[in-house]
Design a binder for these strands. Structure first.
Length: 883
RNA sequence: AGGCGCGUAGCUCAGGGGGAGAGCGCUACCUUGACACGGUAGAAGUCAGCGGUUCAAAUCCGCUCGCGCCUACCA
């Protein structure tokens, strides 16, 4: 068997992934008698490359999927990608630009074909990257949001919502990106604190008697003003309400209206009303019955509704011109620096223009109400639970969702405009004739739907909805959704609303919200900072298993994950540690390797205490993993496994086992030891498999057995029969004795190769016999020449002394003992113990503690105090005897 | 402006009413037949501050300070 000294992840990963695919390990079984466990992947953008966020949430999902699969559940982890409207369109736009052409030149149909072509060619990249991570998705059910089936679902959902009056088309103020030339939703606008200006302008009253001053951060919008508003109870302006001002530069007459939305303290307390370019003004204008005037085109240039001097100017050029002209006319009262939030496009960072246009909307209130109830009554649970607050807050004050986008790539809105009578025909398929006038010239609405509209349907559209398919019946609702908080509102909220609406049941029972992967300094990863870590590079350097373990170990609910290279190095070392532990065990299996079953575990009465100890510890680990994973505590699961493998199995059990495998050891002892070693190794590999699938498969394949893959082997469960408290106590004592002796060695600078004698004195015979029975083990671990009982340790002459759980220890060091060093060592030890003792002593002197604390707490305090006391006394006597 | 979260060893973080923990780093020693991606031993903390509840607070409750994040229509 080739068994390299160091684990080399690159050599095995692809091989085992292919193996799993060949066996169909990841495919769900519709006809399985086992309970289903299902998850829908948060579909990454087709344009995407795997980033740390993906790596994290897909690692966690894969841990759940593999774990439940090994436990025997029928697991469906459904993968796929999102068509990502704007993002994808932009990628192809850029490509065309490079070729010296553009979307417009190509025309819509050719452009859309071109995007599909791009998708076929490059769209699969992220899928391959998920495979490299080891994701055990059911690839036979891979979906894309623009698949025919999903597109069908989108149309169906749209039509049904429209029929129910929950989708409408209206002229409304929306967030407009002049660069993307489309409307976007509120969520796609990123507010950014910006140092700007506040301009105060004087609008003269039409009757010539004075004027009113208004303040604005966007002076160019004044060209679209249709009124001025003041607070109805503002004494400064009360008398002006109802009067008219003349709009500077334009001359238009504007009425002064009263509206309580005006903040009297801000600016001058009077607001210019630009209904077509400001959401508040839009609402205020509606209330006051003021008209709207759009003064920009879709690229953010001033249109024909403004005086000739400004037409065609970009909005920022127009701003300068307007300000200059106002100043020239003497109506610019003041300019002040002003810090405020400016909305920018999530995609291209362009400053968003509120813009009046005709769009499609979802009336979300009724959907949100049910969605809030579903979370309130526990039909959907959040982990961590505090996210419910954010969820409720957002859902509570949600406003209508603008779902139309002026793009070409996406689901075109299933509405057909009649050229004859302008009737809008919303239908599942293109109608032959207008339902109102029978006209035959129909033109489909050019807009497409917000990408998140189709994503909102993902948990059921992927399973065949609106058809009543077996997949849908079996796997909906999904068990859990694992995703980042950044798309809580974009996606999670909307899925809950749509799931409840169309399936009556929420799309998942639990939402696990991951933290954010940050860099080692805790900074958010971003291209501009240049601190983005590429998970694929980490896989290349450290292996997918190490990356997964790192992410799992750091995934404490509710906190972000500062990813440091050092940490990864540590977990790669862990992979190497298991590798070598397995190497040791398997190379020691010798001739038994020929067989297709591992050596059977000997009956209990043939096991030694260390065997019963490690089996007991293993059983506890199995219980912990079961419980912690069930609570989505990936971090504690990972830590428990790490701790057990490294610090119990390797540090102690393997070391205790070694002498039994030596050539001269009794064969029966060797057989017993091998059996336990392999048994625990096998269990540990299976326990670790969900977290570290590749290395565990590779090692498990080297253990003799009949299974085809560890991925389908049963997950180890806690076996009560293996819990053995006496064995745990005994080994704890052995361990402490060994550590005491090693400490003496290290502190007194004794040659590590030198074999020392050890004398001990135990109070009771049972303990003494136990130590005697394990003398060889102790001797090996502590490098002793012998371990002997002594009735009285005070007569041994110069010796280093220690106490382990009440057992007195002496290492005779005639001739080599540095008395002063020993005194220093003991004194330090005594000081430490005394400090501990004081705490307990104080408690035990407190009558209220004795009276009110739970009895077992008091007993424990007594016991600890007594032990500390004894130890201190013994060590003190030793110090005295040293003079 | 509201809401949420965080402040524990040099660093990054677990823990969460009853003897302060891990990983990395650090110090000393060790190439011992699985592993130097290793071993052994060790040093290191007013658990942000102040008050309260309790027999007992790092842990629960208030307030303060510091740091993040999210939401919001102050032009």
């Amino acid at each position: 068997m080739d068994f390299e000294k160091a684990f080399e992840p690159g050599r095995i990963e692809e091989r085992w992934y292919t193996h799993w695919m060949k066996l169909g390990v990841f495919t769900a079984h519709l006809d399985s008698p086992r309970p289903p466990f299902s998850m829908a992947i948060p579909p990454p953008n087709v344009t995407g490359r795997l980033h740390m966020g993906h790596a994290l949430n897909n690692t966690l999902q894969d841990i759940l999927a593999r774990w439940r699969r090994m436990r025997g559940d029928d697991v469906l982890w459904l993968p796929g990608t999102d068509h990502a409207g704007i993002a994808t369109q932009m990628v192809v736009d850029r490509q065309l630009a490079k070729e010296g052409t553009g979307r417009e030149a190509l025309g819509r149909d050719a452009f859309v074909r071109r995007v599909w072509q791009w998708k076929e060619e490059y769209g699969g990249a992220i899928i391959d990257q998920l495979k490299r991570l080891g994701c055990s998705c059911d690839w036979t059910r891979e979906r894309f949001t623009m698949d025919p089936g999903l597109s069908h679902a989108v149309r169906e959902a749209f039509v049904r919502l429209h029929e129910a009056g929950l989708i409408y088309r209206d002229k409304f103020i929306v967030n407009w990106c002049p660069r993307c030339r489309t409307a976007i939703s509120d969520l796609e606008v990123i507010p950014q604190e910006t140092q700007g200006h506040l301009w105060t302008i004087r609008y003269p009253l039409a009757d010539g008697c004075g004027g009113i001053e208004v303040a604005t951060t966007r002076p160019e919008t004044m060209l679209g003003d249709t009124g001025v508003a003041v607070h109805p109870e503002d004494d400064r302006y009360r008398s002006l309400i109802g009067k008219t001002v003349a709009l500077p530069l334009v001359g238009r007459a504007l009425p002064i209206v009263a509206d309580p939305f005006v903040e009297r303290e801000f600016g001058t307390g009077a607001v210019k009303i630009t209904p077509a370019h400001d959401p508040n003004d839009f609402e205020a204008a509606r209330r006051a019955g003021l008209p709207s005037l759009v003064v920009m085109d879709e690229q953010g240039r001033m249109n024909d509704n403004v005086p000739e001097a400004y037409r065609g100017l970009d909005r920022f050029e127009a701003r300068e011109r307007v300000v200059a002209d106002l100043r020239a006319q003497g109506v610019l009262v003041s300019v002040k620096d002003h810090l405020h939030n400016v909305g920018r496009c999530q995609r291209c960072n362009t400053i968003i223009e509120p813009y009046l246009s005709t769009q499609w909307f979802v009336r979300v209130k009724p959907l949100a109400e049910e969605a809030i109830r579903a979370v309130a009554d526990g039909r959907v649970r959040f982990t961590p639970a505090h996210w419910v607050n954010s969820y409720n807050e957002w859902m509570g004050k949600i406003h209508d969702w603008c779902i139309s986008r002026q793009l070409w790539w996406g689901h075109q809105i299933p509405a057909w405009h009649c050229e004859t009578c302008s009737e809008i025909n919303v239908a599942r398929e293109a109608p032959a004739a207008c339902r109102r006038c029978g006209g035959r010239v129909l033109r489909q609405d050019p807009d497409v739907l917000d990408t998140w509209f189709s994503s909102a349907l993902w948990p059921f559209s992927t399973l065949g909805w609106p058809d009543d398919t077996p997949d849908l019946r079996r796997y909906y609702p999904t068990t859990v959704l694992v995703t980042g908080f950044d798309i809580l509102f974009f996606w999670v909220c909307r899925m809950i609303m749509m799931g409840l609406r169309f399936m009556t049941v929420a799309p998942f029972r639990r939402v696990y919200i991951t933290g954010l992967v940050r860099d080692a300094e805790g900074q958010k990863m971003s291209k501009t900072r240049g601190n983005v870590v590429d998970p694929l590079e980490l896989i290349d350097r450290y292996g997918a298993d190490a990356l997964r373990l790192t992410l799992a170990a750091m995934a404490t609910p509710g906190s972000d994950l500062p990813l440091s290279e050092e940490r990864m190095v540590g977990y790669r070392a862990f992979a190497n540690k298991i590798w070598n532990a397995a190497r040791f065990v398997l190379l020691n299996l010798g001739e038994t390797r020929q067989v297709d079953a591992p050596p059977p575990l000997p009956p209990r009465d043939r096991l030694r205490v260390e065997d019963r100890w490690i089996l007991s510890r293993l059983a506890r680990l199995e219980g912990t993993v079961e419980e912690r994973l069930g609570d989505y505590r990936f971090d504690e699961t990972a830590n428990a496994l790490y701790q057990f493998v490294w610090h119990e199995y390797c540090d102690w059990y393997l070391e205790i086992a070694k002498p039994h495998l030596l050539p001269g050891a009794p064969p029966i002892e060797a057989a017993r030891t091998r059996a336990v070693l392999v048994h625990v190794l096998d269990a540990v590999l299976r326990l670790l498999h969900p977290v570290m699938p590749f290395i565990t498969e590779d090692l498990w394949q080297r253990i003799p057995h009949r299974g085809e893959t560890i991925a389908l082997s049963p997950y180890p469960e806690r076996d009560e029969a293996h819990i053995d408290e006496p064995a745990e106590r005994e080994v704890a004592l052995l361990m402490e004795i060994v550590v005491r002796v090693r400490n003496i060695r290290a502190e007194l600078n004794i040659d590590p190769t030198r074999r020392l004698p050890l004398l001990y004195h135990a109070r009771d015979r049972e303990t003494a016999e136990m130590i005697a029975a394990n003398a060889a083990t102790i001797a090996t671990l502590a490098r002793l020449e012998g371990v002997r009982a002594a009735a009285d340790l005070s007569a041994t002459g110069p010796a280093a002394r220690a106490v382990a759980q009440g057992v007195e220890l002496a290492v005779p060091l005639a001739g080599i003992l540095d008395l002063e060093a020993e005194k220093r060592r003991l004194s330090r030890e005594i000081e430490k113990l005394a400090r501990e003792r004081e705490g307990h002593a104080r408690k035990l002197q407190n009558a209220e503690f004795l009276g009110k604390a739970r009895p077992e707490i008091v007993d424990k305090a007594r016991r600890i105090h007594r032990e500390l006391q004894e130890k201190i006394e013994r060590l003190s006597r030793t110090v005295e005897s040293l003079g």
